Each structure stands twice: as C-alpha cells, then as structure tokens.
Computed example of a mutant assay.
Amino acid sequence: MKTLFTLIIILCSTMMNYAQSRDTIYLWPDEVPGEIKPKSKPIESDNKSGNVLRISEVTNPAIIIYEPKEHLNNGVGIIVCPGGGYQILAIDLEGYEIAAWLNKLGFTAYVLPYRVPNKRKEALYDLQRAFRVIRSKKSKSGFNVKKLGVLGFSAGGSLSARASTRFHADSYPKTDAIDALSSRPDFTLLIYPAYLDEGKNRKLTPELLVDAQTPPMFIFATADDQYANSALVMATALRDYKASVELHLLPKGGHGYGIRPGNIAAETWPSLAETWLRRHVLE
C-alpha cells in the first residue's frame, strides 16, 4: 500500500511538472477583472483521493497549450475546462489527460485553469477571454486555429454551456483590442455536465439563452449520475430551437470519471466524441 501511495504521488508530481513545462499564456496582462486577490500560483490540494490532482485559489487564470505532432495537426483548437464544483479543478483527470488524448486526434488543446473557488461569474470572464486570446495569436505551427471549440466536464460543462449561450453580450468590461474578438465557441462538448437544470422544477437554468446561433453540441452523461438531468434539459432546449445536438445517455458510470479506463462510461464517450468531431467539425 505504501508503494502504491508513493507511485501516485510521483505520478501527480510528474503530471504537474509536465504541464508547467508547456507554453502557458496568462489571460489578463494587467488587472484581473473581478479579482481582489493578488496574482499567485494555484494551490495544490492535499486531497489526492482517486489519484486526482486538485488545484484551487486560482487568481491568475491561464491557458496551458498542448500542441499535437505537426503531421497530425488538423488546425482545430479545443479549450478544456476541468470540473470540480466551482470549488477546485480536477486539473489532471479532466484537464491534462484530456489534452493528451485530443493531441492524438490532431487537435490543439488549451487547458484552462479558470478561477475558483466560488467564482462562477469570474470563471465565465476567463473562458470568454481565453477564446479571444487564442484567436488573437498564431500557433507554433504558424497558423491561426481554423475552428475553436470547448470541452467541459461537470462544473466545467456548466461553464462551457454558459459560454456557448451567452456570447451575444460581454460579461466583463473590455480591457484591450483582444476583447473585440468573438468569444463564441464554434462547437461544444459537454461531458457529465452539472448545474444546467437550476430553473423552476429542474428546468433549464435561466441564464442559458439557447437560440438558433447556439453552437452544435455533443452531450454525454449516465442515468445514475445525480447531475444527469442537466444533460437532458440542455439537449431538449437545443432540440426545441432546432439547434444541432447529439445526446448519449448510458445506464451506468456515475460522475467524475474523465477518460481513465475501468469505467464503462469513461471507455465509451471518447470514441463517440471522436466520431462526432470528425463528422461535425472536421468535415
């Protein structure tokens, strides 16, 4: 048991160092809108249960860039939003590991440590700013992303849905020329999303303003997930507005499984998402 615990600690440390060695772009060069604390490094939690690296106290949000091998690069980018109940971020389980998988498919991934804890409003600032920052730059490969989408897990799914339905209006005051660029995702993937059914009688959360301009969505959840209703109400709203949506609901799998083997849902959604991406994004 002691040996296993030691291996887990080494793995978590390696993943964190691996991420830190990658290109990182901080979203706000000067003051961070809505932030009262000084910019500092996120705090790693002592809670490593489930072999998950958790971070909190994010005050200087950034995007960590994962670029695929040049011969695989398809020119499409995806911002990855980890979950954690808007309290922490499961930064490896639903961030770094997802980015590595996307790279194998040819996508450039941008892991977003958005602000936590208890900063739903500010987290949206961060995601919208991330879209604009990425669209303002060129990749190492020398071209701007042809398309830019978002993939979110749990609370990160909530954040992704908010960005996908609230791009019509600015959520924060413009800070520079970058903020004139669009924050609309070209496509959205929601994996076991949460907090989308906070309306009356568990209907769609009122701030999610679905319309014909809402980007196409892929949604995956399981029936035994306590947050599964979020996936159902989101898919229903998209269908009602004749927006493009693909919903998958498995009987079992629970919540918070990421892409790790050993869970039927974790072993199922990646292939379904890959097929959807190839059909609806790459064609």
Rank of each mutant, 00 (worst) to 15 (best):
T6Y: 11
L7C: 10
M15F: 13
Y18L: 05
Q20L: 09
S21E: 13
T24Q: 15
T24S: 11
T24C: 05
Y26I: 03
Y26F: 15
W28N: 03
D30H: 09
K41V: 10
I43Q: 15
S45K: 09
D46S: 12
S49E: 14
S49M: 01
V52A: 13
R54N: 12
Y66H: 12
P68E: 13
L72R: 14
G75S: 07
V76L: 06
I78D: 04
I79Q: 12
G84C: 04
Y86K: 08
Q87C: 00
L89A: 11
I91F: 11
D92H: 14
E94A: 08
E94D: 05
G95A: 08
G95V: 11
G95Q: 09
Y96C: 07
Y96T: 15
A100N: 12
K104E: 14
F107R: 08
V111M: 04
V111G: 04
P117I: 03
R120H: 05
K121F: 00
A123S: 15
L124T: 10
Q128G: 06
R129F: 00
R135T: 13
S136D: 12
K138Y: 06
K138F: 02
K140F: 01
K140N: 14
G142T: 09
F143C: 05
V145P: 01
K147N: 06
G149W: 06
G149S: 06
V150K: 03
F153V: 08
L159M: 04
A161I: 06
A161F: 03
R166D: 04
H168N: 07
H168L: 03
D176G: 08
A177F: 07
D179T: 12
L189P: 02
Y195Q: 04
L196P: 01
D197Q: 06
K200T: 13
L204H: 10
L209S: 15
A212Q: 14
Q213M: 04
T214I: 06
M217I: 02
T222A: 03
T222N: 11
N229C: 00
N229H: 11
N229T: 14
A231D: 04
M234E: 06
A237C: 05
R239H: 09
S244G: 02
S244A: 10
L249P: 02
K252W: 00
K252E: 07
G254T: 12
G254Q: 07
G258D: 07
I259W: 04
N263M: 02
N263W: 05
I264H: 02
W269A: 02
S271W: 00
A273H: 09
A273Y: 07
W276L: 02
R278T: 09
E283P: 03
